[in-house]
């Protein structure tokens, strides 16, 4: 047996295989009927669509396996339209694939460069056009055209103004000021320390001064969570401990990672979870990050009580709440 490998000739394109419907009249008839069947199915789908619009009450619910209890009106409207449109498409594709001409055509790629005479004609046409417009002679038109095109060119620059204005102090500050009362959200009722048992939480916002309106922008910065623990559970620095009141500790609800509302408080583990990226904050240790992508603890709000015994902020937040931004100092 020889170990020499014979030179392989270029096999070229495989032979064109004709379809059954091209040679067999019975198969052709069958394909024709299949296409017609799909189009009739489509027509029936439209009839179903119209009939369900007219005859099925819009509040009728039926049980369908997998889907569960489903509105029959909507279900059959959708089903009818799906059948009608899908079957038109399926029929058209089947028609094209089985019955329409099946010729393989080879088209060679042409050369990229245009023929020499076409190139010459193009150059001549451009020159003729330039001469006809008279731009060289009519200098006032040339200049005014230059002015208008130049001005149009710089107009998008003005839209850049909409990237601003700069937020200035808005990212650094919240509505909490020294002496602002804590009120329930919703309800706007002031809170006394005795309103919270150990293990209780309260979602709070700053009390509005008369005439002030609560905007979503403000809620997005001001939302605070109150949690009451046993005082002996705290593992805080003396300064942070002085920011609590009778075991009640207050944290910004705005996650220091991406700004989601952190309020999943597990009473037994005393962990506070962010629902978006599972950052976990340990409440007794001043919301220290113990899991997840958050880079900083949640800012703590210093609280105390006023002369009437209601909880108030004893100072504004000492750091910006929420996620990091360029100008943030820490």
């Amino acid at each position: 047996m020889s170990h020499e490998v014979a030179n392989l000739s270029d096999p070229g394109l495989p032979d064109h295989v004709h379809r059954l419907a091209d040679s067999d009249p019975a198969a052709e008839k069958k394909a024709e009927r299949a296409v017609a069947f799909l189009f009739i199915l489509s027509a029936l789908g439209t009839v179903l669509f119209i009939a369900s619009y007219v005859y099925i009450p819009h509040n009728l619910f039926v049980f369908v396996p997998i889907l569960g209890s489903t509105n029959a009106h909507q279900l059959f409207l959708g089903l009818g339209l799906t059948i009608s449109m899908l079957c038109i498409g399926l029929g058209a594709v089947h028609w094209a694939k089985t019955l329409m001409p099946d010729n393989e055509i080879i088209a060679q790629r042409h050369e990229f460069r245009s023929p020499e005479n076409e190139r010459k004609e193009f150059v001549a046409a451009v020159k003729e056009g330039a001469a006809a417009s008279g731009l060289g002679r009519r200098s006032i038109i040339k200049r005014t055209l230059g002015l208008s095109l130049g001005l149009v060119g710089i107009s998008p620059l003005f839209l850049l103004r909409d990237l601003g204005p700069l937020p200035k102090e808005q990212l650094q500050t919240t509505s909490w000021k020294t002496g602002t009362r804590l009120v329930t959200d919703p309800g706007n009722r002031p809170i006394k320390p005795s309103d919270l048992e150990v293990g209780a939480v309260a979602q709070v916002l700053p009390q509005l001064t008369p005439g002030e309106e609560r905007t979503l922008n403000n809620i997005g910065k001001d939302a605070v969570l109150l949690i009451r623990l046993r005082t002996e559970d705290f593992q805080l620095s003396p300064e942070r401990l002085s920011w609590t009141h009778e075991g009640i500790i207050a944290f910004s609800k705005i996650c220091s990672h991406m700004g989601c509302a952190v309020a999943l408080y597990e009473q037994q583990t005393k962990h506070l979870l962010c629902p978006c990226h599972q950052s976990t904050f340990d409440v007794p240790r001043a919301a220290k990050v113990i899991f997840g992508p958050a880079a900083r603890p949640l800012p703590q709000l210093a609280i105390t009580v006023d002369s009437e015994g209601y909880l108030i902020a004893s100072q504004p937040f000492t750091e910006p709440v929420g996620p990091s931004f360029w100008e943030r100092s820490s």
């Binding site: 329930t184 309103d195 009473q267």
Partner: peptide, 18 residues
Amino acid sequence: TGPQSMPVFSDKIITPAE
């Protein structure tokens, strides 16, 4: 009562009517 992981939502914070 705040069973298991759930915190307490006391009647002063969320009133009985609420």
